[in-house]
Design a protein around this nucleic acid. Structure first.
Lengths: 186, 186
DNA sequence: TCGCCCATGTAAGTTGTTACATGATTCG
DNA sequence: CGAATCATGTAACAACTTACATGGGCGA
């Protein structure tokens, strides 16, 4: 069985939900996967084309009153099989997340403490915004939890991951800030 | 002042330490920055070339007994200035880390619980390995803490970040596993 | 009419990895 | 002599972003 990249599998997975067009896929990602996956249109449309060419999905044009036509994609049996195979494959090596703040902090001795403190405070604020976003997504998922109930518990679990690791990062910021502020005062 | 990408700044920063050749940069990254930054030779050497062309560093060939010659780079005043400017710039939007496990879990309803449990357990093991790696790096930094003492506290802070967020991820795994195992039993 | 949402798509550019090529020295 | 480490570099490819092009409908 041929291998595709994770972005292709992400799109195959989304096509199992009620989001079936390029535009709808982008919306779902921006609303519900944004904490661990992002895709731009520049990837979505070419990938949908590839998926169709490979026989993993079929395309139907659908017209809706008051809105432009949209191309709706539906997974074929082969497409479902490819998705299932990927799901059952063991995970690859976990990847390193590049972190600009840590990179700057690594070279922090070439900077004033004031600047380091400012960077940390800025990071903490951004993390708190992120946490608030997660709570928002959580609420909107729980609110719309009528139709696809089986998926909801999985979606909430991915959010819980985001919340927990974000809290840990915020606590680290607080700890680091305390350390630098003590230096200042001492 | 011209803008470069973060990888270029990472290399400029490393050139402030005792690592001054492409090979030594790669070693430092693999040993001490590996938890939040990775660069391949395919990027290091072209970037060093760029840095030299831009007048941010000068190059001297240095011969050592018993080893091949190496190109040693040294930051110019302009190079130091560019680094300092970057350090003082406010951080950009914090980026999303792509997570294959979360992506699979998001589509977990298309999979058996056994497979989900296996994926989570596998992930937990990998996270525990990662944690052990961090402790190892921490010990080697503390052990070699004689010369560049001012940098050490910053380096340890970046490791603390890695440790804290990894623990949070491990705890999430345990929580998720508990949830699925209860379903199994109940 | 202007701006916004809906909707699809492409081209150019950036960034990065992998695999390869080369070659010296040291150690077993 | 073979393997490992030290050392530099490039070419091909993969992945992804940004900016642009296009155009219909709707509401203020």
């Amino acid at each position: 069985m041929k291998n595709y990249n994770d972005t292709t599998y992400a799109i195959l997975g989304i096509l199992t939900t009620s989001c079936r067009s390029g535009y709808a896929i982008k919306q779902l990602i921006d609303q519900s996967l944004t904490h661990f996956w992002k895709i731009s249109y520049g990837q979505i449309y070419p990938t949908l084309k590839l998926i169709t060419e490979e026989g993993l999905a079929t395309i139907q044009s659908s017209s809706q009153p008051g809105k432009p036509d949209r191309n709706e994609y539906e997974l074929t049996d082969k497409g479902k099989e490819v998705l299932r195979e990927w799901l059952e494959q063991p995970i690859k090596q976990i990847s390193v997340e590049r972190n600009e703040v840590l990179l700057k902090l690594f070279f922090g001795s070439h900077q004033s403490k004031q600047h380091t403190i400012r960077t940390l405070q800025d990071y903490k604020n951004k993390l708190e915004d992120r946490y608030a976003t997660y709570v928002g997504i959580e609420q909107s998922i729980t609110a719309h939890a009528t139709d696809e109930e089986q998926d909801v518990q999985y979606w909430l679990l991915t959010l819980d991951y985001g919340k927990r690791t974000t809290i840990a990062a915020i606590e680290w910021c607080e700890h680091a800030l305390l350390q630098f502020n003590q230096m200042e005062g001492g």
